[in-house]
């Protein structure tokens, strides 16, 4: 793989991360992270949609007049999301119920639209496809970090498996209790704030003056 293609793939993982650097696609990033499993499924769904939306729009880029490109993009993205939604309903119905409206909201997820606008309309199909995969992974990795803390501290489990032993809990005569606040929406925002804080402490060039 050429180094430029590799850069498209790995850039969005940290230095150009869609969630914590470009501040895109926050809505769904926060809402589906109470548990790890829906977060992983959501990350994969967004990756598939971004990659294929980029690929299709990159193939069409010379044939679509720029005045109507937004509508064309929405149609392409909406069709891909409907496909993903039907697949989720067919194979992982319980997760699909948990994600509820947020699967539909991939359509208005700024990452998909933003990458198509900013990258796929100027680049070749293969590069665009890799860019989509990279941004999907960058988005998914943040989702997994948030969900890891929220599920571990909020319910004491990871992917549904118990991590914190039952005997530690106060009900069983121990000293520990779950942080119920972690299950509420506001904590997701505060965790993202802390991730940005940590990330920018290491990447000084991203700090705002």
């Amino acid at each position: 793989m050429a180094s430029k293609s590799l850069k498209n793939l790995t850039g969005p993982l940290s230095g150009n991360n869609p969630v914590i650097v470009q501040i895109l696609g926050i809505c769904s990033a926060l809402a589906v992270t109470v548990q790890l499993k829906p977060a992983i499924v959501m990350g994969l769904s967004v990756m598939v949609v971004t990659a294929f939306a980029n690929l299709v729009m990159s193939l069409l880029r010379n044939g679509v007049p720029s005045r109507i490109r937004i509508i064309v993009q929405l149609v392409v993205i909406a069709s891909l999301v409907i496909l993903v939604d039907q697949v989720l309903k067919a194979f992982v119905y319980d997760v699909s119920k948990q994600l509820s409206v947020y699967v539909g909201l991939i359509i208005t997820n700024c990452i998909v639209m933003g990458r198509v606008e900013a990258f796929a309309l100027q680049n070749k199909p293969w590069d665009s496809f890799l860019d989509g995969i990279g941004n999907g992974l960058g988005y998914g990795s943040i989702l997994v970090i948030i969900a890891f803390f929220r599920e571990l501290l909020g319910s004491g489990t990871l992917l549904g498996f118990r991590i914190i032993p039952e005997s530690w809990y106060i009900a069983e005569g121990g000293f520990y209790s779950n942080c119920g606040l972690m299950l509420f929406p506001p904590m997701a925002l505060i965790i993202v704030g802390c991730i940005i804080w940590a990330h920018r402490s290491f990447n000084k060039d991203l700090q705002e003056k």
Binding site: P186, I190, G193, R200
Partner: peptide
């Protein structure tokens, strides 16, 4: 490192 979006997220969390 918190300037800009970082503090905005934390404020939103507190408002929430």
């Amino acid at each position: 490192p918190l300037k800009g979006p970082g503090i905005a997220f934390i404020i939103t969390g507190l408002l929430g």
